[in-house]
Design a binder for these strands. Structure first.
Lengths: 337, 337
DNA sequence: CTGAAAGCGCTTACAG
DNA sequence: CTGAAAGCGCTTACAG
């Protein structure tokens, strides 16, 4: 039942080469021949065997995208963009979930499915550039990560330190002085880990304003989910913060929930800001102020870097930066916003 | 630089067959030989070429999952489960976005990447079973869809009529009589389309309660996103509904937002319920009452059906049903809940 | 328990 | 402009 190129050739009474030429849109085929082949192709309902083609060409048209979790809105939205961009180049995206585990990140970078995928886009959580650079196989790889400069590995950089700093400065600009932070992470984390760099931005902003970093106003979380944000906010209430920077929007939405339950008016008593600009924050009550990274640009640049390594236009620098903007909504400005 | 099985064989001084045996865990290999090969494998850092293996075996270990949109929380959560389940069988998931477009659903079902993927899980929006059954190629396909009975196509069924009916009954049980609905869809939709069947459930519940379906209390949407829910709710306010069934949680979260902006107390004046039980609804203010489908079961059963077609244990019936439960939260019960 | 050889279905120099 | 043939890197009957 499986229709091969050879079957089509026999059916049309031509050579396999000619059928292949037609299938691949090779121009030097006489119109009559092309028509005959086309008819046979349709009559037999031929579908190319992509494994065979890939083996022969040395290219599969598949790229992998490895993110911590598909059900974290930020990554779900990013994945959508990556799939869209890849499609423009005729590539298909294969999705991996690393759960932010070092072991899984390593497996992915070490060449899981090598020779099957043409390239890999990885959003590392546990491993840093140096480690990844050491274990990677020869498959082109693009990292989504921190601005680092001089790294010998392709990556789309987002300045998390600046993002957290700008967010914190926004809270300070409202006259808040007891600015808490939710999202510190305990134990071993990569130097370039998101929690680490956002923490740096937070602390830089406080320092610049001449404010101390109070341990009583910072909270460590086990993960960046809503529930963790709600818990952390609960435990923060006794400290009477007048503002909170959450290291992502999910934490912030959890914090908003905890404040609502406690009956604390936002932003009157406590202003809240997150980072990521996920869809939910635009429709929560109050709506969530946040730092909006240019997700479409992240996806576009990641795919573009891969394209370069796979024979596209000349390679640009290894590091491409992507910007962000402050989006102030009700959780810091109130209803007037 | 590319290491082939043959290179390993030469390096170890054995035949290609032997190396293949070791790589594939074939048992009848002497310990000494195995060890020698193992060493060569590691020394050369051999990675199997999956395209070649797939061509030879006729199996790739890849399955595709086609959903309307990755950034709709319901599908993001579902995708996570599917990836997890697939992994248990050693399968990798390739993700497609159809955007709910008939054209794209058709392309996917017609054999996009046939011979590359071993199977397909499709969540159709625009096409119904009969159409899909007619255009599909021979690749095993499992649909995520409506309970239909007697269909000649594998599918995991979720009773959307019942889900919408139970949700509506919950609103009625609170003594509400002006129960609105947001999520009707205009134009051509599949008979088994989600909007269509949820609408049926809504109307059935009203009829059973002896209430009329008022056109003034139903709203058509262009899509199932929050923004559409907010807009629909805005236009519904003048009709003074005392409850609203939204055909999914995203619409409901949008509706909650519109009610908050309008200063309408929920659930005191208007009770709101959605369907899907997405994460956001557990942390919104008020928290969102909803119908919770067993997403893990949907994923598990879909993968299991595929497994049957791909040589797993004996095939079960073509239709496997998955249940749901009513989760009543603040948007219908108020804070006491 | 191990080896030599065929063949999965393509694409692509190489001839003509 | 078209055809015959090699070969991509595997796995698997078939011998031994």
């Amino acid at each position: 039942m499986r229709v091969r190129l050879r079957d089509v050739a026999e059916h049309a009474g031509v050579s396999v080469k000619t059928v292949s030429n037609v299938v691949n849109g090779y121009v030097h085929v006489s119109p009559a021949m092309r028509e005959k082949v086309q008819a046979a192709l349709e009559e037999l309902n031929y579908r190319a065997n992509l494994s065979a083609r890939s083996l022969r060409r040395g290219r599969s048209g598949l790229i992998a995208l490895a993110v911590p979790a598909l059900d974290m809105p930020y990554f779900a939205e990013l994945t959508r963009f990556v799939v869209q961009e890849a499609e423009l180049l005729g590539w298909t995206v294969l999705v991996d979930q690393t759960d932010g585990l070092r072991e899984r990140e390593q497996v992915v970078a070490t060449g899981l499915r090598s020779h099957l995928i043409d390239g890999l886009i990885l959003s590392p959580v546990a491993m840093d550039y140096a480690e990844l650079s050491a274990v990677r196989d020869e498959t082109p790889m693009v990292l989504l990560g921190e601005k680092i400069g001089g790294a010998d590995i392709d990556h789309v950089a987002f300045d998390n330190v600046a993002a957290a700093r700008v967010a914190t400065e926004h809270l300070l600009s409202l006259g808040r002085t007891r600015v808490a932070a939710i999202g510190y992470q305990a134990g071993v984390v990569a130097r370039s880990g998101v929690a680490e760099v956002r923490r740096t931005g937070y602390e830089q902003a406080l320092a610049a304003a001449g404010l101390p970093v109070r341990a009583s106003l910072t909270r460590t979380v086990a993960g960046f989910q809503r529930l963790e944000g709600a818990r952390a906010m609960d435990s923060l209430l006794a400290e009477r913060p007048d503002a909170v920077l959450c290291f992502n929007d999910q934490l912030a939405l959890g914090a908003l929930r905890a404040l609502a339950v406690a009956g604390v008016p936002v932003p009157d008593e406590v202003a809240v800001i997150g980072i990521d600009d996920i869809e939910d924050g635009r429709f929560s009550s109050p709506t969530l102020s946040t730092i909006a990274p240019d997700k479409a640009a992240v996806a576009r640049e990641a795919v573009r870097l891969l394209h370069h390594r796979l024979g596209g236009p000349a390679a640009p620098s290894r590091e491409v930066s992507v910007g962000f903007e402050l989006v102030a909504r009700e959780s810091t400005l109130g209803r007037r916003g």
